[in-house]
Computed example of a mutant assay.
Amino acid sequence: MSAALFIEQLLNGLQLGFMLFLMAAGLTLIFGVMGLINLAHGSLYMVGAFACAIVAAATGSFWLGLAASLAAAAAAGAIIEVLVIRRLYARDHLDQVLATFALILIFSEGARWLFGSFPLYLDIPSALGGAVRLPGGATYSAYRLAIIGIGILVAVGLWLLVSKTRLGMRIRAGESDREMVAALGVDIGLLYTLVFALGAALAGLAGAMVGALQSVQVGMGEPVLILAFVVIVIGGIGSIKGALVGALLVGVTDTLGRFLLPRGFELFMGTSDAATVGAAIASMLIYLVMAVVLAVRPQGLFPANR
């Protein structure tokens, strides 16, 4: 195994991790502020991907499509919060799960009715279509590096928003004592809508970015949603820092596990058996990591301060 190949796989893990962070950050922000389990978050990821694909195909500009993904997902999130989610805050978590699961079905069938069952495809923008030479002679996709860069910028932007702005102060206060925040005159309904729209926009951004690496199709958000829940459980529910660390841990563990485990098993079994056993264990690896983290720190690595 060459160093260049290992570096490539490591960067693939970081790229997956930052994509998961875009999903998990919005999910953990919504849960931390509202106490809401939103199973429809993956549908907002799908909305962003479809909006980007449709607008990019119509205009020939991936960047306009990316802007459309943010706007469409944020608008869909705001509408959902006002029409549906607002009625669930005082309800039991089981009611929230059932209602947001129903939203998954509505979004999936709506997307199938509008766009059909066939996948759509996004072209990587020409400015990011090549490869970048890394130190040591390795090369790596410029577009995947851009995803890593955007993930870093979003992480820094969320930290600045939450810790340095008046809106962030209200978000942190809403996490700690929403009744007191409302009593002090803050429009808690508007705050919840803004937070939900922000989380939806991050999911839409993730869907648009990944849409250029794989097909855009109905149901594409559900597998990613499962990984996002694993991320926030590992990192600590309600913690942006935990979402970042958990996402990178899950991304690198999953990618390197699928890369290294089959090669490790080849040392004492045949290539075909090693590939089968290695792939099976690799698929369980992130869940084993989650179990170990919860055994040591039941609240996650960086639980939100309450």
Score class of each variant (00 low, 15 high):
R91Q: 10
R91A: 13
R91S: 10
D92T: 13
D92R: 02
H93K: 14
H93R: 08
H93G: 13
H93T: 15
H93I: 03
H93M: 14
H93E: 15
L94N: 10
L94G: 01
L94W: 07
D95P: 07
D95T: 07
D95S: 12
Q96V: 12
Q96S: 01
Q96I: 13
Q96E: 14
V97F: 02
V97T: 07
L98C: 11
L98V: 10
L98N: 10
L98T: 15
A99Y: 08
A99E: 05
A99P: 04
A99S: 06
T100E: 08
T100A: 15
T100V: 06
T100D: 11
F101A: 06
F101L: 03
F101E: 02
F101C: 00
F101Q: 02
F101W: 04
F101G: 05
A102H: 14
A102N: 07
A102M: 14
A102T: 10
A102D: 14
A102I: 04
L103V: 02
L103Y: 09
L103K: 07
I104Q: 05
I104M: 04
I104L: 01
L105E: 10
L105P: 01
L105N: 13
L105K: 06
L105M: 14
L105T: 12
L105Y: 15
L105I: 08
L105H: 08
F107A: 07
F107G: 00
F107S: 00
S108C: 09
S108M: 02
S108N: 04
E109W: 08
G110Y: 13
G110S: 02
A111P: 04
A111R: 13
R112N: 06
R112K: 12
R112W: 15
R112H: 05
R112V: 07
R112M: 12
R112E: 15
R112P: 00
W113I: 13
W113A: 03
L114H: 14
L114K: 15
L114S: 05
L114G: 03
F115N: 02
F115L: 08
F115G: 02
F115D: 02
F115M: 11
G116F: 00
G116D: 00
G116C: 00
S117G: 09
S117Q: 05
S117E: 11
S117L: 08
F118T: 02
F118C: 00
F118W: 12
F118S: 14
F118D: 12
P119D: 08
P119Q: 14
P119W: 07
L120D: 13
Y121K: 10
L122V: 01
L122N: 15
L122Y: 00
L122K: 15
D123S: 15
D123E: 15
D123W: 15
D123H: 10
D123K: 06
I124V: 12
I124T: 08
I124Y: 10
P125W: 03
P125V: 07
